[in-house]
Design a protein around this nucleic acid. Sequence first.
DNA 1: CAATTCCTTACGAACGGTCGTCAGGCAAAG
DNA 2: CTTTGCCTGACGACCGTTCGTAAGGAATTG
Lengths: 189, 189
Amino acid sequence: MTTQSIKDAALILFAEHGYNGTSLSHIAAETGLKKQSLYSHFASKDDLFLQVLEETFAAELRDREQYVNDRFSEPLDEFLLGALRGMTGRFGHDARMKFWLRVSFFPPAHLYDQVMEYVYRYIDGVDALYLKRFEQAAALGEVTRQNPETATLAFSALIDSICVELVYGGEERTERKLQAAWAVFWAGL
Amino acid sequence: MTTQSIKDAALILFAEHGYNGTSLSHIAAETGLKKQSLYSHFASKDDLFLQVLEETFAAELRDREQYVNDRFSEPLDEFLLGALRGMTGRFGHDARMKFWLRVSFFPPAHLYDQVMEYVYRYIDGVDALYLKRFEQAAALGEVTRQNPETATLAFSALIDSICVELVYGGEERTERKLQAAWAVFWAGL
DNA sequence: CAATTCCTTACGAACGGTCGTCAGGCAAAG
DNA sequence: CTTTGCCTGACGACCGTTCGTAAGGAATTG
């Protein structure tokens, strides 16, 4: 469907150049249309953006839920490291993740509230997933020095730092920092 | 000097709305000039931006050097926590920090290489400062489980995560996450 | 079957606006 | 008299958006 291919192109361009840096002409050209034709499918640029936003955040959260469900019973360190590697492995190839990162960090000013609603809902959703795993780890005595809530927040911060490194760009930088941060995190649990 | 007041206004606006979101009209209006008059002081928008960029990053690095020199002999935990609090306390009020964060994360595409040069130089400079402190801590036996290089990178990652939280916005969110991340980090050193 | 109506999709043309930039002039200062 | 700082005016390019229109298919009608 044309509507979907417009959204696909918009996702990639928004991810790469941001909201203001992406014009309807670019999106239309990428889809093989003229910019006016986009208005047969979307009411406005904001409408298109918000639809892409909603679907992207929903898909991201769905992916995390799937990961946690699939590998819940793995050893804690493999489970957590796998989650981190799942991020480093995706950035660079995955436009959906780039879109999610860029929009989360710097949403278009006039849509700030609507974007942040999705952002917070996503983060809270992901944290809730990891909290369950940390609660089981505490029950099994795998983690003793930190309570599950603290562990979850610290792990959430570790994820944040990886996002930063990914955005900053360097791949071997990300790898070095991830290993060091993980070593200290794991030793501190 | 007018030139300086233009740069001051530009710093604030670039920090708040980014490169593409800031027009020369805005900058000029904030300075009490017409946009065309800016060309008496700067060759182009890029020229103005790059000058602000250079001075901001240089000033940021200078501040960090000053902090480290002033408080090098404090206990390690106070020294590190003070550095973190120095960030959380500044964001929201300090346009220079906002500019530094925003430009670092999403530089204007056509100036990507030049911006990233400053970004990497800044991060390497800051890491080198903290590395010295961790080396002393290792020599004094304050830190035994991690070597200075690993500790430095992990602390650098902790700083990254704080940057993310600051950008995300929530103040009590940042505080909760900072406390948890710090607890695990400090326990893992 | 053919003819008609309607809806969807896409397009060309044009709108008002804003952008960064350039040229020229005018007043004040050295 | 020259230089400097700021002004007005204008430029071409691009922005998001609107309008009228034309093609095509589906559905309805005779």
